[in-house]
């Protein structure tokens, strides 16, 4: 199918969608990379034998 004609201001319309796309992809990439790094660091610590007391309890009860 053909894209409809975007008129004389096509550049602005495409730029607006590009901004949105770049922002969303940026957030997604940031969240995914951040999550992977955190999982790796958690695994490293647990491999060294450091565990929370009562592993399935509330993790946020910081001593």
């Amino acid at each position: 199918m053909m894209l409809p004609s975007l008129g004389p201001h096509a550049g602005f319309i495409l730029a607006a969608y590009a901004v949105f796309l770049v922002a969303v992809i940026g957030v997604v990439v940031w969240i995914v990379l951040d999550g992977r790094q955190l999982s790796r660091q958690l695994a490293e610590l647990e491999a060294r034998g450091i565990r929370r007391r009562g592993s399935d309890k509330k993790p946020d009860a910081v001593p």
């Binding site: 969240i31 951040d34 565990r51």
Partner: peptide, 14 residues
């Protein structure tokens, strides 16, 4: 991610 970050912090403190 944030929950993981807090767990990491707790583990580091331990």
């Amino acid at each position: 991610n944030e929950i993981k970050r807090r767990r990491l912090r707790t583990l580091r403190l331990i």
